[in-house]
Simulated scan of single mutants.
Amino acid sequence: MIHVRRAGPLDAGAMADLLNEVIAAGGTTAMTEPVTGKDLRDRMGRSELSVWHLAENDSGTVLGFQWIEPLTGESGRVAEIATFARVGQTGLGIGSALFDATRQAAAAAGYDWIRANIRADNAGGLAYYQSRGFEDYGRIEGYRMGNGQVVDKILKRYEL
């Protein structure tokens, strides 16, 4: 069974381990360098409007996590979202459970809409956000990642 709860600083190490697996596998995130628990704790503390959720199984193993944080430069009060599921565990309802909690938290925090910024070659990520009701609204062409790889990115929005 999948349990979703708010993530806190003590979860940062386990979330970093999961994220590092995703980064090492490649192909789904624009992040190219490993992160530490401290990196994630620092990111969690950047804004009072950041909201982090964690999905875990009955034994407490982290299955995935999702965060939103304020995004400037867009019209309205906008949250940018990031979602990560354990490698090999996609398609099991983890993302759906996380987004249910995140959507509610975003509305409660007063956001107008949520932006997803997805690599154009990440078919799974594009399908995930589309299935949650996100709609395309823009594209970033020729985004250079930290490792020098160039990808296009699709911008999607979810109205709250």
Score class of each variant (00 low, 15 high):
His3Thr: 14
His3Ala: 12
Gly8His: 09
Leu10Asn: 10
Asp11Cys: 09
Asp11Gly: 02
Ala12Tyr: 00
Ala16Cys: 11
Asp17Ile: 08
Asp17Pro: 03
Leu18Pro: 03
Leu19Lys: 06
Asn20Met: 05
Glu21Asn: 02
Val22Lys: 04
Ala24Thr: 13
Ala24Glu: 12
Ala25His: 14
Gly27Glu: 08
Ala30Ser: 15
Thr32Asp: 09
Pro34Glu: 03
Val35Thr: 02
Gly37Glu: 01
Arg41Gly: 02
Asp42Pro: 03
Met44Trp: 08
Met44Gly: 09
Arg46Ser: 02
Leu49Asn: 05
Ser50Gln: 05
Ser50Gly: 14
Val51Gly: 11
Val51Met: 04
Asp58Phe: 00
Ser59Lys: 10
Gly60Asn: 08
Val62Glu: 01
Val62Asn: 06
Trp67Leu: 14
Ile68Gln: 04
Leu71His: 11
Gly73Ser: 10
Ser75Lys: 12
Gly76His: 05
Gly76Asp: 08
Val78Pro: 03
Ala79Tyr: 01
Ala79Met: 05
Glu80Gln: 13
Ile81Val: 15
Ile81Phe: 05
Thr83Leu: 13
Thr83Ala: 07
Val87Thr: 13
Gly88Leu: 10
Gly91Lys: 08
Leu92Pro: 00
Leu92Ala: 13
Ser96Thr: 15
Phe99Gly: 06
Asp100Ala: 14
Thr102Tyr: 03
Arg103Asp: 08
Ala105Pro: 04
Ala106Asn: 04
Ala108Gln: 11
Ala109Glu: 14
Gly110Ser: 07
Asp112Ile: 03
Trp113Val: 03
Arg115Glu: 12
Ala116Met: 11
Ala116Trp: 06
Ala116Pro: 09
Asp121Glu: 13
Asp121Met: 07
Asn122Gln: 05
Gly124His: 09
Leu126Ala: 07
Phe134Cys: 05
Glu135His: 10
Gly142Cys: 07
Gly142Tyr: 01
Gly142Trp: 00
Arg144Glu: 15
Met145Trp: 01
Asp152Leu: 01
Lys153Asn: 07
Lys153Cys: 14
Leu155Val: 08
Lys156His: 00
Glu159His: 10
